[in-house]
Design a protein around this nucleic acid. Sequence first.
RNA 1: GCCGGGAUGGCGGAAUCGGUAGACGCAGCGGACUCAAAAUCCGCCGGUGGCGACACCAUGAGAGUUCGACUCUCUCUCCCGGCACCA
Length: 887
Amino acid sequence: MQQKYDPHAIEREAQRYWEESGAFRATEAPGRPKYYCLSMFPYPSGKLHMGHVRNYTLGDVLARHHRMKGYNVLQPMGWDAFGLPAENAAMANGVPPAQWTYDNIAYMKRQLKSLGFAIDWSREIATCRPDYYKWNQWLFLKMLERGLVYKKTGVVNWDPVDQTVLANEQVIDGRGWRTGAPVEKREIPMYYMAITRYAEELLAALDGLAGWPERVKTMQANWIGKSYGVRFAFPYELDGRAEKLWVFTTRADTIMGVTFCAVAPEHPLAARAARDNPALAAFVEECKRGSVMEADLATLEKKGMPAGLSVVHPLTGEPVPVWVANYVLMAYGEGAVMGVPAHDERDFYFARQHGLPIRQVIQTRAAGADAFTPERWQAWYEAKDGVCVNSGKYDGLGYEQAVDAIAADLEAKGLGGKRVLWRLRDWGISRQRYWGCPIPIIHCADCGEVPVPERELPVVLPEDLVPDGTGNPLAKTPSFYECRCPKCGARARRETDTMDTFVDSSWYYLRYACPDNAHAMVDERVAYWLPVDQYIGGIEHAILHLLYSRFWTKVMRDLGLIAFDEPFTNLLTQGMVLNEIYFRRGAGGRITYYNPAEVEVRAGADGTRSAVLRSDGLPVESGGIGTMSKSKNNGVDPQDLIDRYGADIARFFMIFTSPPEQSLEWSDSGVEGAARFLRRLWSFAHEHHALIREESGRRGTQRAERGRLPNLAAVAPELAAVRREIHANLKQANYDFDRLQFNTVASAAMKMLNALSSVPRPAAAADAEREAARRLLLHEGMGILLRVLAPITPHVSHHLWRELGFGEDILAAPWPEPDPAALEEEEIELVVQVNGKKRGDVRVPRDADRKAIEEIVLADPTVRRFVSGQPVKKVVVVPGRLVNVVV
RNA sequence: GCCGGGAUGGCGGAAUCGGUAGACGCAGCGGACUCAAAAUCCGCCGGUGGCGACACCAUGAGAGUUCGACUCUCUCUCCCGGCACCA
């Protein structure tokens, strides 16, 4: 055995062994318990970043641990290969997105392999391959047939200079990222998937997802946003026609307090009112500036203008003025709201700003007539514990009675009724972009929108175009868009929009089960492997990706393609890997980001810190810390770490440095500790190896360590303590594996090595029985330690397992369980408190009862000192833990 | 703005059901080995006071519940993630 730990050599060797033995090739084995372990597939951005290493190490730990526990494990990998960065890279370098993407895939695949992940590469997929996205198109058409896909207009960011649609990410401070031009909102036709039809099930089924983090389920529930309320109308007359302005409210009990209505700038009524009102038209126009992002809209200064018309209150018959307000969202509810300034904080400020009347219609016990503070109204609002006042026939009714009575009256007048409102909106999937899956539709002048016939799928995306930032290249490529109408044969135009990349990632986990099936989207192998037993990915996907995947699963179930309801049984959401962000703002507001590795932080004499770019010594601005990303140029290349230390050390460090779900501010201080630990493991193993060889030489046998451990308590009590330590840490490690807290598994492994290292070397004239016991203990401990480490540091574990003669392949070894006999203790230690403060500890027999413990504790000199004669009120005994004497 | 989460020594973190705060590791300090350095090994290592035994303080801030709170409740501060076209 080599004396020196050479990670690169043993990693090459172990990886070759796995490759040649096809160790990670998964095959369907009905009857064996299966474990489908899936990490979110990467976008092939160029190189792996630390988030990938964290994600895939976590997945690999789970996959390898379950494999050793006897599961038939599938761990696949693929590429989320369509998307915007490829187009940006193409513009920057003049290389087609396809080539850039395939090059990146090749490079990143090599990186993943060098980390030794137990991946079945025979199932690799890339979403930009026609044999994959064909099925996007196929399912799109199935959904279209069933009315689950439909067309309507949607609002996008429009760059008026480049004449192109911008992604939210491409809008910086309200301006186009390339042109610096102020962005406008523009309405265009788009295809939508009717996810709202599944809103009820998507919400209700969250309760059944026992293996999902609560925080993710809460976020999804809030996103779906079911609210119960009343939808009702304010009648009005315009251009000689009777019309209705519909609104939705969750507080119909306050309807008698309505003093105005507000509509979104995009509302038809606003457009109509602006027609003969230039000032209002200018305001509506002003509201069109800026991006469509909700975060931007929600932080806008609240502005409004009278529409110059009024509607009729449905219950009082009084006229109610209509306003156009930028805080009303067209996309939520009816695009119009009732205004009740007395009982809604936002309405209150709006009314005060514009001199609108405030009419109190709810009173609570807690508040007097002068208690008009928005904070207080908020409390009433949430508690719903007031009664109606100034409300005519509804006076004295509580929240529920008032809502019931008012809804009934509205219903009787044909002006509304109770209604459930969802916050969830249908999923717009059209993108005016090149590098995505073509939408399989043909536009014919006579036949309208005609689906591409199934036999003509896939509609293949040309791979040789280079976008230039102005519009969609597909729309400028006649060889792509020129076609014949499948219905009438006339010249027609192919749809040039592509699909949202979330479509690609909504079902890829199914395709790993049957990546080679050219005739069907899914087959019986999907029934074997799915649903995914453990899904691992970043918390940033808590809502969109996971919700779309759940929706897609339910759609495929209803199409009879699969037979389960939810795609992911257990979910581990890893925290983000963060790093400093530095940038400079150039001319026209364009921002250039600098990698923290190129930046030097200097502390000034006055304690202030300033950052300068190393290359030119000039200052850069700090953008705080944030997720490592290509767009913020704050990634750290893990390759340096792997080249320098090898895969096992990189993996061990990644696991040890923080718990999986917590976000992690990147720092590599501490990686030396991981390296030191594995070197110590190696040299300990080397010493043990020599010991075994010596003993087997003496006995003339190949395998020396077959004997049974004697009763250590009798032979060598100090060894019994070591064995207790090993088994206690094994118990802890198994517990932590099960609760997915791997950082403390790594700690437990370190503690085991510390315990084994603490075993004293025998004196020159050691007695033979003791020496044999010592050797057997070390061997047992080493066998446990290597198996506990195998999921985290697979290469070195594989190597030492064979070297020390435990067996051929550690992957085939049974997972270790602690020996209860090793954990038994005659005496246990109890912490002693007086009035809740720790004052010492006592040792008591393991089976001492409460009364005996009380006697021992009250007789303890330290306790007596602190009690010092005061009467003992009570003695709290927590079995196995502590005793608290209250005086 | 809205939704979700987080904050513990100089640093990463541990504390499983409300029961010893700081496991394990990094950095630092002292020592051994060495011609020397690296590596390795041993010891110390939250703060304040004390020669010491020990005492007091301390888990972002402030209140509360409890025999007992890092853990539960309320208020606040700061940070991170998401907000529907980054993936």
